[in-house]
Design a protein around this nucleic acid. Sequence first.
DNA 1: CCAATTGTTCAATAACTTTTGAACTAAGGA
DNA 2: TCCTTAGTTCAAAAGTTATTGAACAATTGG
Lengths: 118, 118
Amino acid sequence: MTLPHPNTDQISLPIVLGVLGDPTRLAIVRYLASKEGLPLNCSRFLDLASKTNLSYHLAKLREAGVTRAEVVGTNRMITLRRADLDARFPGLLDSVIAAAADDTALPAVGGHDLEMPA
Amino acid sequence: MTLPHPNTDQISLPIVLGVLGDPTRLAIVRYLASKEGLPLNCSRFLDLASKTNLSYHLAKLREAGVTRAEVVGTNRMITLRRADLDARFPGLLDSVIAAAADDTALPAVGGHDLEMPA
DNA sequence: CCAATTGTTCAATAACTTTTGAACTAAGGA
DNA sequence: TCCTTAGTTCAAAAGTTATTGAACAATTGG
């Protein structure tokens, strides 16, 4: 059970930009970037949208090649495709994330900690 | 007769990204970047869309703060707001333009020369 | 097996975006 | 003044995207 992802050379700039042009999706990407390396499951993002709507936005991100989703049991673990994006569009992701951090009109990235309970 | 433009601190990242996510507008921006400094009138872009449609896309770019339009007689001279974009979102415009140049799925920027006829 | 958890799909709707042609304005040149 | 050039505005049509709730599927733990 693997989900469809474009390969690196199929990632399209206008599609990536369009996908990042939505505030919910930009927030998802910022959150992923802030926890980079850690695979996060979808329900991490439930403060950003309803479950159904999240499914929609996460599919858009995945289909655009911005994120990767791996099926692990009943979870989908989501990661940023940083290496692929950097290879295809050097500097783009970093400048978008830095720009988002500078844009005071956007909410700060959520700081849920993810330590295991002791 | 001046047209409405957002000031620098009003430029919003998701709006800019959304606006650049359209292939016609991305092509306009690439062309402006390739002729940087030169103010170009709207009809420079008639190969990209119809006159009416161009008016629509150029308004979107202007309202997002990506371009500036100055009324000069019967022309609107369009320039990239590079300094403002660089101030607000450092590196973003450069990486978008570089990414567009790398994206072989996008058409090469049109090379109309603009020498005055002899 | 049963129930809970995680997330998807579907159909409907609402909201927005893009594109078009026809009519228009405003400036400039003959 | 009349014609042309440059571009806008408007309303309609077409297309696309976002959001919702209800129903569904798959896995896991008891």
